[in-house]
């Protein structure tokens, strides 16, 4: 059985009247890419700050690597790497100096540090930009520098707090691939995001948060299995007659039929050949239609099912 790297028990953090984190329990195992998914303001970053012992919390207990995490747990902190949401680098230092500066807060030996910094720059693909100041870098490259500063000292636990905010798709993919590589190299990863696709893509286990509470937990497949809909079919067409929608609702696996923005949206709860059955009805009724496509459920559907709102709302 894998060792527990982070254990959060009944964590409560309040800002005056607002409860930012409410009785949260987490257990993150060694070697996991653990995703913390939720809309903005759901308490992800607050949870991370509590784990790092930056924020004082009202109730609960946090253990990292089996020891209680306190502000002076420097031995534990030295095994953690943090990639914050905002750019946390110095504008006055160039790329190499920034990485060396932060790596120097963990690694005292100069030769080892140089090797680590070189490896980190190579890993994030910033070797050609060593002498560049952060402000001269594009948004994506700057994000990579932010990551390099957090991982250069080869931490056992790396926390990524929304590292792809305002990043172009190409850089985003590069970052996500890098995180998977780091995990393969042995690092346990905590990844927070409100982008469900990213979490789905890289995380081995996911916790969905809303209003400071954990609302769901499991692998991507486990989470999707918790919802009724297994498939949603979309058909481009004019607004259908009521008789048509009623007819479709009589199909065995169809749970709901609605017309939205020029599309007929048919929610299916399982079973096979749903699309064939629907197409047969359309042909029988001689209805003209455009494109037809089918989508599998996403984490957004999971979130929608549980909370009644979209993840991006």
């Amino acid at each position: 059985m894998s060792n527990t790297v982070v254990k959060v028990e009944n964590l409560v953090k309040k800002y005056k009247e607002l409860t930012a984190v409410d009785q949260l329990n987490l257990e993150i195992k060694e070697g996991e890419v653990f995703g913390l998914l939720g809309p903005n303001g759901c308490g992800k970053t607050t949870t991370i700050s509590c784990i790092l012992s930056l924020l004082a919390f009202d109730e609960g207990k946090i253990e990292v690597f089996g020891k209680e995490m306190t502000p002076v747990s420097y031995d534990l902190k030295s095994m953690i790497g943090i990639v914050p949401q905002n750019m946390a680098v110095f504008d006055e230092l160039n790329v190499y100096e920034n990485v060396d500066c932060f790596c120097g807060m963990y690694i005292a030996d100069q030769a080892t540090r140089k090797q680590y910094v070189d490896e980190a720059l190579d890993f994030v693909g910033l070797n050609d930009f060593r002498k560049f100041r952060p402000k001269k870098l594009s948004g994506g490259l700057a994000r990579r520098l932010n990551i390099a500063c957090g991982i250069a000292h080869k931490p056992k636990l790396i926390i990524f707090d929304e590292p792809t905010v305002a990043v172009d798709p190409q850089s985003r993919n590069k970052i996500l691939e890098g995180i998977v590589d780091l995990n393969k190299q042995g690092a346990t990863v905590i990844y927070t995001s409100h982008y469900m696709e990213e979490v789905e893509q890289i995380c081995s286990r996911i916790v969905i948060m809303d209003h400071g509470k954990k609302i769901a937990e499991g692998t991507s497949d486990e989470l999707k299995r918790t919802i009724k809909n297994t498939e949603t079919i979309f058909i481009e067409m004019d607004e259908p007659a009521a008789s048509l929608t009623e007819k479709m609702k009589t199909l065995a696996n169809v749970s709901d039929v609605s017309w939205k923005e020029g599309k007929l949206v048919i929610a299916c709860t399982g079973g096979r050949h749903n699309l064939i059955d629907i197409m047969e009805i359309l042909q029988a009724e001689k209805v003209q239609f455009g494109r037809v496509w089918s989508e599998l459920p996403t984490l957004n559907d999971v979130f929608l099912t549980i909370t009644g709102k979209e993840l991006r709302d």
Partner: peptide, 16 residues
């Protein structure tokens, strides 16, 4: 740490 992102990152480090 409550004044700048750089300080927050430093506060997470292993340096006393």
């Amino acid at each position: 740490a409550n004044l700048s992102d750089q300080a927050a990152r430093r506060s997470c480090s292993g340096m006393p």
